[in-house]
Design a protein around this nucleic acid. Structure first.
Lengths: 156, 156
DNA sequence: GGGGGGCTACTCGGATAGCCCCTGTCCGAGTTGTATCGG
DNA sequence: CCGATACAACTCGGACAGGGGCTATCCGAGTAGCCCCCC
């Protein structure tokens, strides 16, 4: 099981956008971390589609958070980039077994599927319970001048 | 983020092996769920390599659990098939940012990496806390004759 | 000098190739059970 | 009739192609600012 690279990029970018508070072009964010600009742009587009970020076209444009940082959870960002479907996919394998009905959907009855879903729910709950603002506060606790540095490097 | 199909197959097969208690050929397990025999064999080999199952070569051979069902957790099976590495990979992106050291490993300091690891830990803890025996008990609670059916279909 | 129009530069947005891992398959090494042959 | 031996069938194990999704890139649509020209 491997998570896409874009998730890490999106999380760091959202954190920076929370500190800047203004629209930042994708190219500048890419230059900040030395990332492929066009590909990072793709991830930011996904964030816009999910309603996490807003985009401003034209000069002086860029991306900014669509909501306050304490209303954006890590799960929101992960789902925006990776998609909403679960990692474990129950293919109703029991329908092919002797005594099973191939036309039935066992994802809600199969004990294995339920256990796996329960575990993923714990993962989602953990991510949903941590907001960008909380993560930002953690960063400030160890590096108090991080917001200032980011703003100086990303603000026009 | 997508989990491999083999995980579902491996979990169901391990549950059945727990009920049969004897060595079952991979081809018979594949026929039980109408799965590609050679590919399922690949997953079972992974379980053997991880020490979850044992293999017996030759006629009357097959696969059986290497430990009692209450000592095999769902996490053991998932890790055996999917590999031990985490889904979220911190690439120390902060090392490329201004003021960062590219030679440093930030996976233990970066607040985002720590949050993601914490969430995955919750997922792993959930899976590690549920054993095959518990899942089997859940199945018996709703379908009391499932073990007998499986034994009849898989035992020689 | 003030206002309007055109132009340029810059931004996002979607459409387009390349590569790696999951999926699916095949054949060989090893072992057990059996049938046969000899004593 | 009993035992040893050769054979055959069945099993796992690792090596070999094919496809889908992540990675990476490019170019077009649209807009804000600016410069120039005209009144």
């Amino acid at each position: 099981m491997r998570m896409g690279q874009g998730v890490e990029w999106a999380l760091h970018c959202c954190l920076n956008l929370a500190w800047v508070g203004d629209a930042v072009p994708g190219a500048r964010l890419a230059g900040f971390y030395d990332l492929p600009p066009a590909y990072l742009n793709k991830q930011l587009q996904a964030l816009v589609r999910a309603g996490v970020c807003e985009s401003v076209p034209g000069p002086r444009g860029g991306f900014r958070l669509a909501r306050p940082a304490d209303e954006v959870s890590l799960l929101d960002v992960v789902v925006a980039v990776e998609g909403p479907e679960d990692a474990f996919r129950c293919t109703s394998i029991l329908g092919a077994a002797p005594g099973g009905d191939p036309s039935l959907d066992y994802s809600g009855h199969c004990a294995i599927s339920l256990s796996m879903r329960s575990a993923e729910l714990a993962w989602r709950r953990e991510l949903a319970g941590r907001s960008l603002a909380e993560v930002a506060a953690d960063v400030v606790r160890t590096a108090p001048d991080a917001p200032q540095h980011v703003r100086a490097a990303l603000a026009p």
